[in-house]
């Protein structure tokens, strides 16, 4: 272990020292202090740890570092341009689209990927795009409203 690994995270080249088998999740959270990507299940079934890898929502919990060495990684902290909030995040605040907020980062990642390829989704398309993200508090409808609101702005 202890290899030097270079990663492109939120547009910046970062270097960390870790085993190449380390899941991306821990490199982001603990080596790079990007805590917005969260552990939920460790097997890619809940969406809490989603990040964009070359634009695709991907669970960071079972993505080893070696597989993303030459990829473009975007976390929830990097969704907005130049440190500002992404329009989705503004819409989530406006709609108060969360209860506990633990699943929110992963949902924002899925929603951002959806809007990037389908800027005017229907409600049904939004729901289907978010089916890989679990929410336990029951904020689903507010989240869907927030995504549709962001798409209109």
């Amino acid at each position: 272990m202890g290899e030097r690994i270079q990663l492109t995270v939120n547009g910046a080249l970062r270097e960390i020292e870790a085993s190449s088998d380390t899941p991306l999740l821990y490199a982001l959270r603990n080596d790079l202090a990007l805590k917005g990507t969260r552990f939920g299940c460790g097997s890619g079934q809940c969406g809490a740890c989603f990040v964009l890898i070359d634009g695709h929502p991907t669970p960071a919990c079972d993505t080893p570092l070696w597989s993303v060495a030459d990829k473009d990684i975007v976390t929830v902290e990097g969704l907005g341009a130049g440190g500002a909030l992404h329009p989705l995040q503004t819409a989530f605040v406006a709609e108060q689209a969360a209860q506990c907020g633990y699943c929110t980062s992963g949902i924002l990642i899925s929603a951002a990927a959806l809007l990037a390829k389908n800027p005017r989704p229907t409600e049904r398309e939004v729901r289907e795009a978010l089916d890989r993200n679990l929410c336990r508090c029951g904020s689903h409808n507010r989240v869907v409203r927030a995504v549709l609101r962001a798409a209109q702005e």
Partner: peptide, 15 residues
Amino acid sequence: DLPDKIAGQPRFIQD
């Protein structure tokens, strides 16, 4: 508490 949580800022004990 929601602005932090929606911005992905550390807020939880896990963070």
